[in-house]
Computed example of a mutant assay.
Amino acid sequence: MTEDILLIPGPVTISNKVQRALGTASISHTSPEFAAIFARVLKNTRLVFKGGETSQPLILAGSGTLGWDVAASNLVEAGEKVLVLSTGYFSDSFAECLQAYGAHVDKVRASLGDVVPLSEVCEALQGTKYKMVTITHVDTSTGVLSDVKSICEVVKKVSPETLIVVDGVCSVGCEKLEFEAWGIDYALSASQKALGAPPGLSVSLLSERAVKEALTRKAPSCFFASLKKWIPVMRNYDNGKACYFATPPVQLVNALDASLTEILDYGLDARVAKHWTTSDWFKNRITEDLGLELVTNSAEDSAHGLTAIYVNNPAEIIAALKKSGIVIAGGLHADIKNQYIRVGHMGAVACEPSLQHLQSCFEALKAFAGGMQA
């Protein structure tokens, strides 16, 4: 039985090295051996996020969604105002999470397939004092890539006291991100996308300002996600000392250790550039060779880890590709849910020299070219 070619926007196909690390025998989470592994993972997380020495990595058992809970329950008090820059389904879901913890949420919505204009961000910040602004770097529902650097510059100029939170679940490892240089306070991600590891880990980084906010606030409105519980644990592991609050998933941490090492050995900037080259190649073939339209309205606002494509028969195409051993994803955005497909190209498949998996996907889509236009 041959394995399917997995081309959804996460989980992604993992490398053989990461697969082997995932299959290692269990060791004690309080052993010196595991403490050394975890210390290396925390150090390499800083490097992949491009954080400074005072930034605090946070590796927890959970999905990227747990990162929302961490932000909502540790960095915002009930009743405080948060500005959400909405570019799709996941931006809105982050807003829903914040509201569940009592935050007062205002949204600035982008037009479908577009980013939020910087002028509207500026106007919103001038009109209201916000505790936090959230930016979804890549909204996986639309494939829209927000200009985090420019947004951070606006926030720093207009409302420097506002915490900047970036959802980088579908961007860290395949998009340019400069945590320290851009002045981000909290960036959250997950193991199963461009970081190239299996699902199951929430991977985040906090600024010194965010750590202070979390540790000095009133009692957090959570238990497992409490930074008052986790920051001492992470600081101990940072120094190679085991510490316990809840049991970490040892094999998943091993796998993340392998994937982060692969990224840094490849060269972070080179790996990001490779994702961009792969994305451009695939998008150009979809638009120029097949004449199809992308959900994103411009190349500069298009993510490099996935491609969202308008078609008039998505369910049929997805089913047919599955029969051919190729797995792609359907739509998520409520306004166009049944009008498009999504092809993921992150991690190992994006870095293949021959791009054989994406080439197979393109050839399969080409077979439907005559009836795919939406």
Score class of each variant (00 low, 15 high):
D69Y: 12
S73G: 07
L83H: 02
A39P: 00
D106P: 01
G79L: 05
S28R: 11
G62Q: 04
G64P: 03
S26A: 14
H104I: 13
V12I: 09
L98F: 15
F34C: 05
T45P: 12
T54C: 07
S55T: 09
R40P: 01
A61Y: 01
S86K: 12
I59L: 11
Q99R: 15
G52H: 04
G10E: 04
S91I: 05
C97Y: 08
S93A: 15
E77T: 09
G88M: 07
T13S: 10
H104P: 00
K107V: 12
A100K: 10
K50Y: 00
Y101L: 05
I8V: 12
E96R: 15
D114K: 14
S15R: 06
V105P: 00
S73R: 09
L42M: 10
A36Y: 08
A21C: 01
L42Q: 00
K107E: 13
K107T: 15
E80H: 11
I14E: 00
I8E: 12
G102N: 13
V12T: 15
S31K: 08
F38R: 14
N16Y: 10
Q99D: 10
E120M: 09
F34L: 02
S55A: 13
I8H: 05
G102F: 13
G10R: 02
D106Q: 12
S73M: 06
Q19N: 15
T87C: 09
C122Y: 08
A35F: 04
G113F: 01
I5T: 06
E77Y: 13
A25F: 01
T30Y: 06
A78E: 14
C97T: 15
S91E: 08
A103D: 07
V105S: 01
G10K: 01
V48S: 03
P11K: 02
T13I: 04
G62V: 04
P11Q: 00
F49A: 01
Y89K: 10
I27C: 08
S119W: 04
Q19G: 15
G102V: 00
L75T: 03
P9T: 13
G88A: 00
P32I: 10
L118D: 04
V115D: 07
H104Y: 05
L42C: 03
V82K: 03
S93V: 13
T13M: 08
F38N: 10
E53L: 05
C122T: 10
S91H: 12
G52V: 09
L47C: 06
K81A: 06
V108E: 12
A71K: 14
V12C: 06
G51N: 09
A61V: 03
Y101H: 11
A78I: 04
Q56T: 15
E33H: 07
V84I: 14
G88N: 09
S111N: 11
Y101Q: 02
Q56R: 14
T54I: 10
A21L: 05
G67I: 01
C97S: 12
S111P: 00
A72R: 02
E53N: 08
E33Q: 08
L7F: 00
F38W: 13
T13L: 03
L7Y: 03
G23D: 12
I14L: 05
E53S: 12
S86Q: 11
E120T: 00
D92A: 11
P117G: 03
D92F: 07
S86F: 11
L22D: 02
A103M: 05
G23K: 14
E77A: 14
E96D: 13
D106E: 13
G64A: 08
A110M: 03
F34T: 03
N16K: 15
